[in-house]
Design a protein around this nucleic acid. Structure first.
Lengths: 170, 170
DNA sequence: TCCTTTTAATTTGTACACTAATGATTTGTG
DNA sequence: CACAAATCATTAGTGTACAAATTAAAAGGA
């Protein structure tokens, strides 16, 4: 372990420090996430689902109906992202969308019978992927928990930042 | 640790096994990656860079010129994704694109003087983020290495799959 | 040499993903 | 009650991201 074993590379020509791509946590996350999505794609296509749509169904299978905003909080997505996504899923017959009679601002989302029927197939996908993934289940769980911890901290940072924006820093 | 402590939830009503969102490694990666991108966004905006554009500059600062295909391999992106992205960066004056005289199929990409000048600012971004990240540098490095290992294995799976597609399984 | 095959990048079409602006409803306050 | 402020979803506009089709150039074979 040398002193120069950092994520910064010192170039001789300018003494400018350039961050190295393969030392960036953000790039590791970016790559891993993209590859995982690619791995799911061929398994989800037969079900008529994209990867974000699959995550949405997972959320709805756990609890429904939910409003667009609640779904966005769970998935970490903007309402502006979800609206067209949910419309496509509605057009595909997997979910229903209706205004909440008790509060006409909200839109309630829930799986249709057809959407509910996909539940069984989802279990098969997890099984198929577990076989492909070249990772011990224990290691996998550890990595997942570490990431979820990071996600929690990043979300805390996020809400803190918006609070400061609104002058609520006390 | 109970026997039911798995990533599958058994529902009483149908005995169907539904994967739980918060137990999915893929969702943890998806969320962490998205949040990290959000964290970078306000820091990169003053430089006129989006997050994928920033990664592209990191790659080009390390080695240039590079072809579109080489960049795609490094970043894990399709040429079809990079072409418009690179055009925007060219329009912004950060990179230059030109056909390789030795092979007119290739397009050589490299930073302009203006793009090279951003190098210094990039170091500052890493510094600013390191302060924000609520994670020990050692833990961070460990997580990064674990992820890079996963990325390597997923890439191997990927090329293996395309090889089978082409009937090269022997 | 001619012609087929392969390779490299681009174009087309669909689907996320976010910011900013808009519209509609509800809540809070005088 | 009236009406300003806050809340919720949608729309508009820009920028990834990929599959499939296209164009252009190089490589390989008869």
């Amino acid at each position: 372990m040398t002193l120069s074993d950092t994520d910064i590379e010192k170039t001789t020509e300018s003494r400018v420090q350039t961050p190295r791509l393969d030392r960036q946590l953000c790039f590791a996350l970016y790559s891993a996430s993209g590859l995982m999505t690619k791995l799911y794609r061929p398994l989800l296509a037969p079900l008529g689902l994209t990867y974000p749509q699959y995550l949405t169904m997972l959320a709805l299978w756990e609890r429904a109906p939910r409003t667009v905003g609640e779904l966005g909080d769970t998935l970490g997505l903007d309402p502006a992202t979800l609206t067209p996504l949910l419309k496509r899923m509605e057009a595909g017959g997997l979910i229903s969308r209706r205004r909440d009679p008790a509060d006409e601002r909200r839109v309630l989302v829930q799986p249709t019978a057809e959407g509910e029927a996909l539940r069984a197939a989802a279990g098969g996908i997890q099984e198929a992927l577990g076989c492909q993934l070249p990772l011990e289940p224990v290691e996998l769980a550890k990595l997942r928990d570490t990431l979820n911890g990071l996600v929690g901290q990043l979300r805390a940072l996020e809400t803190e930042a918006t609070a400061v924006e609104q002058g609520n820093e006390r």
